[in-house]
Design a protein around this nucleic acid. Structure first.
Length: 459
RNA sequence: GGCCCCAUCGUCUAAUGGUUAGGACAGCAGGUUUUCAAUCUGUUAACCGGAGUUCGACUCUCCGUGGGGUCACCA
Protein backbone atom coordinates (compact mmCIF):
# COMPACT_ATOMS: atom_id res chain seq x y z
CA UNK A 1 0.00 0.00 0.00
CA UNK A 2 1.41 3.28 -1.10
CA UNK A 3 1.24 6.36 1.04
CA UNK A 4 1.13 8.76 -1.84
CA UNK A 5 -1.69 11.26 -1.77
CA UNK A 6 -2.10 13.99 -4.36
CA UNK A 7 -4.91 16.43 -4.93
CA UNK A 8 -6.48 18.61 -7.56
CA UNK A 9 -7.73 21.83 -5.94
CA UNK A 10 -9.54 24.01 -8.47
CA UNK A 11 -11.38 27.09 -7.42
CA UNK A 12 -14.89 27.31 -8.87
CA UNK A 13 -14.49 30.82 -10.21
CA UNK A 14 -14.76 30.07 -13.90
CA UNK A 15 -14.76 27.31 -16.45
CA UNK A 16 -11.24 26.02 -16.32
CA UNK A 17 -9.29 25.54 -19.54
CA UNK A 18 -7.08 22.73 -20.64
CA UNK A 19 -4.13 24.05 -18.64
CA UNK A 20 -5.87 23.47 -15.35
CA UNK A 21 -6.96 20.02 -16.32
CA UNK A 22 -3.48 19.21 -17.48
CA UNK A 23 -2.53 19.70 -13.83
CA UNK A 24 -5.33 17.34 -12.83
CA UNK A 25 -4.08 14.80 -15.35
CA UNK A 26 -0.52 14.88 -14.05
CA UNK A 27 -1.75 14.42 -10.50
CA UNK A 28 -4.02 11.60 -11.55
CA UNK A 29 -1.35 9.82 -13.55
CA UNK A 30 1.12 10.10 -10.72
CA UNK A 31 -1.32 8.79 -8.15
CA UNK A 32 -2.53 5.90 -10.27
CA UNK A 33 0.94 4.83 -11.23
CA UNK A 34 2.08 4.78 -7.63
CA UNK A 35 -1.10 3.20 -6.34
CA UNK A 36 -1.81 6.34 -4.36
CA UNK A 37 -4.85 8.53 -3.89
CA UNK A 38 -6.12 11.33 -6.08
CA UNK A 39 -8.22 13.80 -4.11
CA UNK A 40 -10.50 16.53 -5.34
CA UNK A 41 -10.94 19.67 -3.30
CA UNK A 42 -13.02 22.64 -4.32
CA UNK A 43 -11.32 25.79 -3.10
CA UNK A 44 -14.19 28.16 -2.61
CA UNK A 45 -12.87 30.47 0.07
CA UNK A 46 -13.47 33.36 -2.27
CA UNK A 47 -17.19 33.45 -1.70
CA UNK A 48 -17.68 36.41 -3.97
CA UNK A 49 -16.49 34.70 -7.08
CA UNK A 50 -17.19 31.06 -6.38
CA UNK A 51 -20.24 29.71 -8.13
CA UNK A 52 -22.08 26.44 -8.02
CA UNK A 53 -22.26 26.18 -11.80
CA UNK A 54 -18.49 26.28 -12.04
CA UNK A 55 -18.22 23.62 -9.40
CA UNK A 56 -20.62 21.46 -11.40
CA UNK A 57 -18.52 22.17 -14.47
CA UNK A 58 -15.43 20.86 -12.74
CA UNK A 59 -17.19 17.68 -11.72
CA UNK A 60 -18.58 17.19 -15.20
CA UNK A 61 -15.21 17.79 -16.85
CA UNK A 62 -13.43 15.36 -14.58
CA UNK A 63 -16.05 12.72 -15.13
CA UNK A 64 -16.00 13.20 -18.87
CA UNK A 65 -12.22 12.90 -18.93
CA UNK A 66 -12.46 9.78 -16.82
CA UNK A 67 -10.37 11.19 -14.01
CA UNK A 68 -12.07 9.68 -11.00
CA UNK A 69 -11.09 10.92 -7.60
CA UNK A 70 -10.85 8.97 -4.40
CA UNK A 71 -13.39 9.52 -1.68
CA UNK A 72 -15.80 12.42 -1.50
CA UNK A 73 -15.24 15.83 -3.02
CA UNK A 74 -13.99 18.05 -0.29
CA UNK A 75 -15.36 21.55 -0.12
CA UNK A 76 -12.91 23.92 1.46
CA UNK A 77 -15.41 26.22 3.13
CA UNK A 78 -16.91 23.24 4.92
CA UNK A 79 -13.67 22.89 6.80
CA UNK A 80 -13.51 26.39 8.28
CA UNK A 81 -13.62 25.02 11.81
CA UNK A 82 -10.23 23.41 11.25
CA UNK A 83 -8.91 26.56 9.65
CA UNK A 84 -10.06 28.66 12.57
CA UNK A 85 -8.50 26.22 14.99
CA UNK A 86 -5.22 26.45 13.11
CA UNK A 87 -5.39 30.23 13.20
CA UNK A 88 -5.82 30.08 16.97
CA UNK A 89 -2.91 27.70 17.27
CA UNK A 90 -0.78 30.05 15.24
CA UNK A 91 -1.77 33.07 17.28
CA UNK A 92 -1.28 31.28 20.59
CA UNK A 93 2.18 30.20 19.54
CA UNK A 94 3.06 33.70 18.45
CA UNK A 95 3.29 32.76 14.76
CA UNK A 96 0.40 34.99 13.81
CA UNK A 97 -1.32 38.05 15.13
CA UNK A 98 -4.50 40.00 14.74
CA UNK A 99 -4.02 43.29 13.03
CA UNK A 100 -6.53 46.10 13.05
CA UNK A 101 -6.55 47.62 9.61
CA UNK A 102 -8.78 49.54 7.35
CA UNK A 103 -10.67 47.29 4.99
CA UNK A 104 -9.27 47.20 1.47
CA UNK A 105 -12.65 47.59 -0.10
CA UNK A 106 -12.53 51.33 0.47
CA UNK A 107 -15.36 51.28 3.00
CA UNK A 108 -13.15 52.76 5.66
CA UNK A 109 -14.21 50.11 8.13
CA UNK A 110 -11.58 48.93 10.59
CA UNK A 111 -11.27 45.14 10.53
CA UNK A 112 -9.34 42.58 12.51
CA UNK A 113 -7.40 40.61 9.95
CA UNK A 114 -4.87 37.94 10.76
CA UNK A 115 -1.29 38.21 9.63
CA UNK A 116 1.41 35.59 9.73
CA UNK A 117 4.49 36.59 11.66
CA UNK A 118 7.17 36.11 9.08
CA UNK A 119 10.36 34.67 10.59
CA UNK A 120 12.24 36.34 7.75
CA UNK A 121 14.47 33.48 6.85
CA UNK A 122 15.73 31.65 3.83
CA UNK A 123 13.26 29.00 2.68
CA UNK A 124 14.79 26.22 0.65
CA UNK A 125 12.93 23.33 -0.88
CA UNK A 126 13.66 20.71 -3.44
CA UNK A 127 11.29 20.78 -6.34
CA UNK A 128 10.88 17.44 -8.08
CA UNK A 129 11.04 19.10 -11.46
CA UNK A 130 13.05 22.26 -10.96
CA UNK A 131 15.51 21.13 -8.34
CA UNK A 132 16.53 23.25 -5.37
CA UNK A 133 14.74 26.53 -5.01
CA UNK A 134 15.75 29.07 -2.43
CA UNK A 135 13.84 32.19 -1.50
CA UNK A 136 14.33 34.83 1.16
CA UNK A 137 10.99 35.04 2.92
CA UNK A 138 11.70 38.59 4.05
CA UNK A 139 10.35 39.74 0.70
CA UNK A 140 7.01 38.23 1.58
CA UNK A 141 6.35 40.39 4.61
CA UNK A 142 3.78 39.49 7.24
CA UNK A 143 1.28 38.17 4.76
CA UNK A 144 -2.43 37.99 5.54
CA UNK A 145 -3.77 34.54 6.24
CA UNK A 146 -7.37 35.36 7.13
CA UNK A 147 -9.90 38.14 6.61
CA UNK A 148 -10.84 37.51 10.20
CA UNK A 149 -10.52 34.59 12.59
CA UNK A 150 -13.34 32.70 10.91
CA UNK A 151 -12.57 33.60 7.34
CA UNK A 152 -9.35 31.95 6.16
CA UNK A 153 -7.53 32.88 3.01
CA UNK A 154 -5.94 30.63 0.43
CA UNK A 155 -2.54 29.91 1.95
CA UNK A 156 -3.86 28.97 5.37
CA UNK A 157 -6.73 26.90 4.01
CA UNK A 158 -4.53 25.00 1.58
CA UNK A 159 -1.96 24.16 4.17
CA UNK A 160 -4.47 23.00 6.77
CA UNK A 161 -6.48 20.96 4.28
CA UNK A 162 -3.42 19.35 2.78
CA UNK A 163 -2.15 18.43 6.21
CA UNK A 164 -5.48 16.98 7.26
CA UNK A 165 -5.88 14.88 4.16
CA UNK A 166 -2.32 13.67 4.30
CA UNK A 167 -1.23 15.09 0.98
CA UNK A 168 2.28 13.89 0.24
CA UNK A 169 2.88 15.42 -3.17
CA UNK A 170 1.81 18.81 -4.35
CA UNK A 171 1.85 18.82 -8.13
CA UNK A 172 0.73 22.18 -9.42
CA UNK A 173 1.44 24.83 -11.99
CA UNK A 174 4.63 26.84 -12.04
CA UNK A 175 2.63 29.96 -11.24
CA UNK A 176 2.36 28.61 -7.70
CA UNK A 177 6.06 28.49 -7.14
CA UNK A 178 6.15 31.82 -5.38
CA UNK A 179 3.38 30.60 -3.05
CA UNK A 180 5.38 27.65 -1.89
CA UNK A 181 7.68 29.47 0.56
CA UNK A 182 4.67 31.00 2.32
CA UNK A 183 3.02 27.64 2.62
CA UNK A 184 6.15 25.97 3.87
CA UNK A 185 6.48 28.64 6.54
CA UNK A 186 2.90 27.99 7.62
CA UNK A 187 3.38 24.25 7.73
CA UNK A 188 6.48 24.68 9.85
CA UNK A 189 4.63 26.96 12.22
CA UNK A 190 1.90 24.35 12.52
CA UNK A 191 4.48 21.62 13.03
CA UNK A 192 3.26 19.81 9.95
CA UNK A 193 5.12 17.63 7.53
CA UNK A 194 6.24 19.41 4.40
CA UNK A 195 5.10 17.59 1.26
CA UNK A 196 7.11 17.06 -1.88
CA UNK A 197 6.59 19.76 -4.46
CA UNK A 198 6.53 19.42 -8.20
CA UNK A 199 5.88 22.58 -10.15
CA UNK A 200 4.91 21.78 -13.67
CA UNK A 201 5.49 24.12 -16.60
CA UNK A 202 2.72 26.45 -17.62
CA UNK A 203 0.55 25.84 -20.61
CA UNK A 204 1.00 28.83 -22.86
CA UNK A 205 -1.12 30.45 -25.51
CA UNK A 206 -0.04 31.44 -28.99
CA UNK A 207 1.46 34.61 -27.50
CA UNK A 208 3.71 32.55 -25.22
CA UNK A 209 1.92 33.84 -22.17
CA UNK A 210 -0.01 31.89 -19.61
CA UNK A 211 -3.06 30.40 -21.23
CA UNK A 212 -6.13 32.34 -20.26
CA UNK A 213 -9.82 32.45 -20.82
CA UNK A 214 -9.55 36.03 -21.87
CA UNK A 215 -7.28 35.21 -24.75
CA UNK A 216 -9.64 32.64 -26.12
CA UNK A 217 -8.54 29.49 -24.35
CA UNK A 218 -11.37 27.01 -24.54
CA UNK A 219 -12.70 25.24 -21.49
CA UNK A 220 -12.70 21.48 -21.36
CA UNK A 221 -16.48 21.57 -21.51
CA UNK A 222 -16.31 23.48 -24.75
CA UNK A 223 -14.12 20.80 -26.24
CA UNK A 224 -16.65 18.29 -25.05
CA UNK A 225 -19.40 20.21 -26.79
CA UNK A 226 -17.37 20.39 -29.96
CA UNK A 227 -17.14 16.67 -30.02
CA UNK A 228 -13.55 15.97 -29.15
CA UNK A 229 -12.79 12.61 -27.64
CA UNK A 230 -11.84 12.68 -23.97
CA UNK A 231 -9.01 10.28 -24.73
CA UNK A 232 -7.63 12.74 -27.27
CA UNK A 233 -7.84 15.66 -24.85
CA UNK A 234 -6.14 13.54 -22.23
CA UNK A 235 -3.41 12.48 -24.60
CA UNK A 236 -2.84 15.95 -25.99
CA UNK A 237 -2.87 17.59 -22.58
CA UNK A 238 -0.51 15.05 -21.07
CA UNK A 239 1.93 15.77 -23.87
CA UNK A 240 2.11 19.45 -23.04
CA UNK A 241 5.32 19.64 -21.08
CA UNK A 242 5.72 15.91 -20.87
CA UNK A 243 7.09 13.32 -23.21
CA UNK A 244 7.87 9.74 -22.30
CA UNK A 245 10.63 9.58 -24.89
CA UNK A 246 10.56 7.31 -27.88
CA UNK A 247 8.50 7.93 -30.96
CA UNK A 248 5.10 6.71 -29.88
CA UNK A 249 2.74 9.60 -29.35
CA UNK A 250 -0.70 8.07 -29.17
CA UNK A 251 -1.41 6.87 -25.68
CA UNK A 252 -4.53 5.73 -23.90
CA UNK A 253 -5.11 6.76 -20.30
CA UNK A 254 -3.89 3.38 -19.07
CA UNK A 255 -0.75 3.61 -21.15
CA UNK A 256 -0.18 7.14 -19.90
CA UNK A 257 -0.37 5.85 -16.34
CA UNK A 258 2.31 3.31 -17.17
CA UNK A 259 4.79 5.73 -18.70
CA UNK A 260 4.23 8.89 -16.73
CA UNK A 261 7.38 10.14 -15.12
CA UNK A 262 7.79 13.41 -13.24
CA UNK A 263 11.47 13.46 -14.06
CA UNK A 264 10.57 13.64 -17.74
CA UNK A 265 8.44 16.71 -17.27
CA UNK A 266 9.74 19.77 -19.03
CA UNK A 267 10.91 22.83 -17.12
CA UNK A 268 9.91 25.52 -19.54
CA UNK A 269 6.40 26.51 -20.52
CA UNK A 270 4.81 24.97 -23.57
CA UNK A 271 2.53 26.51 -26.16
CA UNK A 272 -0.69 24.60 -26.61
CA UNK A 273 -1.27 23.70 -30.23
CA UNK A 274 -4.94 23.21 -31.17
CA UNK A 275 -3.99 21.95 -34.61
CA UNK A 276 -2.13 19.07 -33.10
CA UNK A 277 -5.10 18.40 -30.86
CA UNK A 278 -7.09 17.75 -34.02
CA UNK A 279 -4.47 15.26 -35.06
CA UNK A 280 -4.60 13.55 -31.68
CA UNK A 281 -8.36 13.35 -32.03
CA UNK A 282 -8.12 11.80 -35.49
CA UNK A 283 -5.66 9.25 -34.23
CA UNK A 284 -7.88 8.35 -31.33
CA UNK A 285 -10.82 8.04 -33.69
CA UNK A 286 -8.83 5.50 -35.66
CA UNK A 287 -8.50 3.45 -32.53
CA UNK A 288 -12.28 3.02 -32.35
CA UNK A 289 -14.31 0.17 -33.74
CA UNK A 290 -16.93 1.02 -36.37
CA UNK A 291 -19.72 0.74 -33.85
CA UNK A 292 -17.94 2.83 -31.26
CA UNK A 293 -17.26 5.43 -33.90
CA UNK A 294 -20.91 5.57 -34.98
CA UNK A 295 -22.00 5.86 -31.40
CA UNK A 296 -19.47 8.63 -30.76
CA UNK A 297 -20.42 10.68 -33.74
CA UNK A 298 -24.21 10.29 -33.80
CA UNK A 299 -25.07 12.79 -31.04
CA UNK A 300 -23.43 15.53 -33.07
CA UNK A 301 -25.49 15.01 -36.21
CA UNK A 302 -28.34 17.47 -36.70
CA UNK A 303 -31.66 15.88 -35.85
CA UNK A 304 -33.12 16.78 -39.21
CA UNK A 305 -30.53 14.56 -40.83
CA UNK A 306 -31.07 11.73 -38.39
CA UNK A 307 -34.80 11.91 -39.00
CA UNK A 308 -34.74 12.16 -42.77
CA UNK A 309 -31.97 9.80 -43.73
CA UNK A 310 -32.50 6.12 -43.20
CA UNK A 311 -30.23 4.58 -40.61
CA UNK A 312 -28.42 2.23 -42.94
CA UNK A 313 -27.50 4.97 -45.40
CA UNK A 314 -26.51 7.31 -42.63
CA UNK A 315 -24.21 4.71 -41.21
CA UNK A 316 -22.58 4.22 -44.60
CA UNK A 317 -22.12 7.95 -44.98
CA UNK A 318 -20.57 8.28 -41.56
CA UNK A 319 -18.14 5.50 -42.27
CA UNK A 320 -17.11 7.05 -45.58
CA UNK A 321 -16.71 10.46 -44.03
CA UNK A 322 -14.68 9.14 -41.12
CA UNK A 323 -11.27 9.78 -42.61
CA UNK A 324 -11.98 13.41 -43.33
CA UNK A 325 -13.11 14.19 -39.83
CA UNK A 326 -11.03 15.90 -37.16
CA UNK A 327 -13.69 15.81 -34.49
CA UNK A 328 -17.35 14.92 -34.28
CA UNK A 329 -18.58 18.48 -34.02
CA UNK A 330 -17.63 19.02 -37.63
CA UNK A 331 -20.77 17.09 -38.45
CA UNK A 332 -22.96 19.63 -36.69
CA UNK A 333 -23.62 21.44 -39.95
CA UNK A 334 -24.21 18.27 -41.89
CA UNK A 335 -27.68 19.58 -42.67
CA UNK A 336 -26.46 22.71 -44.43
CA UNK A 337 -22.85 22.27 -45.46
CA UNK A 338 -22.74 21.44 -49.20
CA UNK A 339 -19.75 19.22 -48.61
CA UNK A 340 -22.09 16.91 -46.69
CA UNK A 341 -25.59 17.45 -47.99
CA UNK A 342 -24.98 15.84 -51.37
CA UNK A 343 -24.23 12.59 -49.59
CA UNK A 344 -27.85 12.11 -48.63
CA UNK A 345 -29.79 14.54 -50.79
CA UNK A 346 -30.01 14.74 -54.55
CA UNK A 347 -30.99 18.39 -54.52
CA UNK A 348 -28.57 20.49 -56.46
CA UNK A 349 -28.46 24.18 -57.07
CA UNK A 350 -26.70 23.61 -60.36
CA UNK A 351 -28.45 24.42 -63.60
CA UNK A 352 -28.70 21.81 -66.33
CA UNK A 353 -26.03 23.63 -68.26
CA UNK A 354 -23.68 23.69 -65.30
CA UNK A 355 -24.20 20.00 -64.75
CA UNK A 356 -23.60 19.34 -68.38
CA UNK A 357 -20.32 21.23 -68.28
CA UNK A 358 -19.26 19.52 -65.13
CA UNK A 359 -19.91 16.12 -66.64
CA UNK A 360 -17.34 16.70 -69.34
CA UNK A 361 -13.99 15.37 -68.25
CA UNK A 362 -11.58 18.26 -67.55
CA UNK A 363 -8.90 18.83 -70.14
CA UNK A 364 -5.96 17.70 -68.00
CA UNK A 365 -7.57 14.37 -67.26
CA UNK A 366 -8.47 13.39 -70.78
CA UNK A 367 -5.03 12.11 -71.66
CA UNK A 368 -5.56 12.64 -75.34
CA UNK A 369 -8.99 11.14 -75.54
CA UNK A 370 -11.55 13.38 -77.16
CA UNK A 371 -14.52 14.12 -74.97
CA UNK A 372 -17.93 15.31 -76.14
CA UNK A 373 -21.42 15.23 -74.82
CA UNK A 374 -22.11 12.26 -77.01
CA UNK A 375 -19.07 10.30 -75.91
CA UNK A 376 -19.86 11.06 -72.30
CA UNK A 377 -23.42 9.86 -72.74
CA UNK A 378 -22.11 6.72 -74.39
CA UNK A 379 -19.72 6.02 -71.51
CA UNK A 380 -22.47 6.61 -69.00
CA UNK A 381 -24.74 4.27 -70.92
CA UNK A 382 -22.17 1.55 -70.72
CA UNK A 383 -21.76 2.19 -67.01
CA UNK A 384 -25.48 1.93 -66.66
CA UNK A 385 -25.63 -1.41 -68.37
CA UNK A 386 -22.88 -2.69 -66.11
CA UNK A 387 -24.87 -1.50 -63.13
CA UNK A 388 -27.93 -3.27 -64.48
CA UNK A 389 -26.07 -6.49 -64.01
CA UNK A 390 -25.16 -5.84 -60.42
CA UNK A 391 -26.95 -7.28 -57.42
CA UNK A 392 -27.89 -5.50 -54.22
CA UNK A 393 -25.14 -7.47 -52.50
CA UNK A 394 -22.54 -5.90 -54.75
CA UNK A 395 -23.22 -2.66 -52.94
CA UNK A 396 -22.41 -4.04 -49.52
CA UNK A 397 -18.85 -2.83 -49.62
CA UNK A 398 -16.97 -0.21 -51.56
CA UNK A 399 -14.60 -2.91 -52.78
CA UNK A 400 -17.21 -5.20 -54.24
CA UNK A 401 -18.97 -2.54 -56.26
CA UNK A 402 -15.64 -1.21 -57.44
CA UNK A 403 -14.76 -4.62 -58.81
CA UNK A 404 -17.74 -4.51 -61.13
CA UNK A 405 -16.63 -1.32 -62.80
CA UNK A 406 -12.90 -1.39 -62.54
CA UNK A 407 -12.02 -3.30 -65.70
CA UNK A 408 -14.27 -1.08 -67.75
CA UNK A 409 -12.66 2.00 -66.29
CA UNK A 410 -9.21 0.61 -67.03
CA UNK A 411 -10.21 -0.15 -70.56
CA UNK A 412 -11.65 3.27 -71.39
CA UNK A 413 -9.31 5.28 -69.24
CA UNK A 414 -10.03 5.85 -65.58
CA UNK A 415 -10.60 9.55 -65.82
CA UNK A 416 -12.84 9.16 -68.83
CA UNK A 417 -15.17 6.83 -66.96
CA UNK A 418 -14.77 7.76 -63.34
CA UNK A 419 -15.05 11.50 -63.68
CA UNK A 420 -18.50 11.62 -65.31
CA UNK A 421 -19.68 8.77 -63.09
CA UNK A 422 -18.66 10.68 -60.01
CA UNK A 423 -20.33 13.86 -61.22
CA UNK A 424 -23.47 11.94 -62.14
CA UNK A 425 -23.65 10.51 -58.65
CA UNK A 426 -22.68 13.60 -56.68
CA UNK A 427 -23.21 16.69 -58.83
CA UNK A 428 -20.24 18.09 -56.96
CA UNK A 429 -16.94 19.41 -58.13
CA UNK A 430 -15.36 17.97 -55.01
CA UNK A 431 -16.72 14.88 -53.38
CA UNK A 432 -15.98 11.40 -52.19
CA UNK A 433 -14.96 8.89 -54.86
CA UNK A 434 -17.58 7.29 -57.14
CA UNK A 435 -17.30 3.85 -55.60
CA UNK A 436 -18.02 5.16 -52.13
CA UNK A 437 -20.95 6.99 -53.62
CA UNK A 438 -22.26 3.82 -55.22
CA UNK A 439 -21.89 2.08 -51.90
CA UNK A 440 -23.88 4.78 -50.12
CA UNK A 441 -26.60 5.07 -52.76
CA UNK A 442 -27.23 1.43 -53.57
CA UNK A 443 -28.29 0.03 -56.92
CA UNK A 444 -31.56 1.72 -57.75
CA UNK A 445 -30.67 5.26 -56.72
CA UNK A 446 -27.32 4.98 -58.45
CA UNK A 447 -28.97 3.98 -61.67
CA UNK A 448 -31.49 6.78 -61.42
CA UNK A 449 -28.69 9.29 -61.10
CA UNK A 450 -26.67 7.87 -63.96
CA UNK A 451 -29.77 7.98 -66.15
CA UNK A 452 -30.37 11.61 -65.21
CA UNK A 453 -26.86 12.47 -66.26
CA UNK A 454 -27.35 10.69 -69.55
CA UNK A 455 -30.51 12.71 -70.09
CA UNK A 456 -28.62 15.92 -69.52
CA UNK A 457 -25.99 14.91 -72.04
CA UNK A 458 -28.34 13.92 -74.81
CA UNK A 459 -30.64 16.86 -74.39
C1' G B 1 11.22 47.24 -10.87
C1' G B 2 12.25 43.18 -6.64
C1' C B 3 12.17 37.95 -6.19
C1' C B 4 11.86 33.19 -8.71
C1' C B 5 12.04 30.10 -13.02
C1' C B 6 13.19 28.85 -17.99
C1' A B 7 15.94 28.63 -23.04
C1' U B 8 16.84 22.49 -29.33
C1' C B 9 13.19 23.30 -36.08
C1' G B 10 7.14 27.95 -36.66
C1' U B 11 4.93 24.54 -32.49
C1' C B 12 5.42 20.04 -29.05
C1' U B 13 9.74 17.44 -28.14
C1' A B 14 14.34 13.32 -28.28
C1' A B 15 19.44 13.61 -27.01
C1' U B 16 21.66 13.01 -20.23
C1' G B 17 30.18 14.77 -22.96
C1' G B 18 31.55 11.96 -28.76
C1' U B 19 24.70 11.56 -33.42
C1' U B 20 24.97 13.42 -40.59
C1' A B 21 21.15 16.84 -33.75
C1' G B 22 16.09 12.18 -34.22
C1' G B 23 10.54 12.19 -34.16
C1' A B 24 5.56 14.44 -34.31
C1' C B 25 2.18 18.59 -35.86
C1' A B 26 2.14 22.34 -39.42
C1' G B 27 4.51 23.71 -44.36
C1' C B 28 6.36 22.34 -49.13
C1' A B 29 7.05 18.62 -53.37
C1' G B 30 5.74 14.17 -55.49
C1' G B 31 3.14 8.96 -55.80
C1' U B 32 -1.53 6.58 -55.51
C1' U B 33 -7.90 3.66 -57.51
C1' U B 34 -10.34 10.57 -61.72
C1' U B 35 -11.67 15.52 -58.03
C1' C B 36 -11.47 16.87 -52.58
C1' A B 37 -10.09 14.34 -48.21
C1' A B 38 -7.36 10.23 -46.39
C1' U B 39 -2.90 7.58 -47.26
C1' C B 40 2.35 6.73 -48.78
C1' U B 41 7.18 8.86 -50.00
C1' G B 42 10.49 12.74 -49.98
C1' U B 43 11.74 17.54 -48.15
C1' U B 44 12.47 22.76 -45.86
C1' A B 45 13.49 24.12 -40.81
C1' A B 46 16.58 24.27 -34.51
C1' C B 47 21.08 23.66 -30.38
C1' C B 48 19.94 32.42 -27.97
C1' G B 49 25.10 34.87 -27.52
C1' G B 50 29.95 35.01 -25.20
C1' A B 51 33.57 33.14 -22.08
C1' G B 52 35.37 28.99 -19.57
C1' U B 53 35.95 23.26 -17.97
C1' U B 54 37.35 19.19 -21.30
C1' C B 55 40.96 15.59 -26.10
C1' G B 56 35.78 16.68 -27.19
C1' A B 57 30.24 20.26 -25.60
C1' C B 58 23.08 20.85 -27.22
C1' U B 59 24.54 18.48 -22.82
C1' C B 60 28.77 20.98 -17.10
C1' U B 61 30.13 26.32 -14.90
C1' C B 62 29.89 31.65 -15.20
C1' C B 63 28.28 36.15 -17.49
C1' G B 64 25.11 38.38 -20.84
C1' U B 65 20.52 38.41 -23.76
C1' G B 66 15.65 36.91 -24.36
C1' G B 67 11.08 34.92 -22.51
C1' G B 68 7.81 33.71 -18.58
C1' G B 69 5.79 33.62 -13.58
C1' U B 70 4.83 36.24 -9.18
C1' C B 71 4.67 40.29 -6.07
C1' A B 72 -4.01 40.85 -3.18
C1' C B 73 -8.02 41.11 2.83
C1' C B 74 -7.95 35.89 -5.57
C1' A B 75 -6.83 31.08 -5.82
Amino acid sequence: MSHIVVRFPPSPTGHAHIGSYRTAIFNYLYAKQKGGKFLLRIEDTDKERSKKEYQDGILESLEWLGLSYDGEVSIQTENVASHTKAIHTLIDAGHAYISKEEAKDGSGVIKEIVRFKNPNKRVVFNDLILGEISVDSTDLGDFVIARNINDPLYHLAVVVDDMESGVTHVIRGMDHISNTPRQILLIEALSGKIPEYAHIPLVLGEDKQKLSKRKGALSVLEYKKMGYLPSAILNAAAFIGFNPGGEKEIYTLDELIQVFDLSKVQKGGAVFNPVKLDWFNQEHMKLMSEDAYIEYVTPFIPTSVVENVDTASLKKILLIVRDRLSYAGELANMDTDPSYTYLYSSNSSLSTEEISNLLLVPEKMRKGTEVTKESTAAILNEVKSILENTTEEDYNTVESIKEKLWSFAEEKGRGIVLWPLRIALTLQEKSVDPFSMLYILGKSESMVRVQKAIDVMVQ
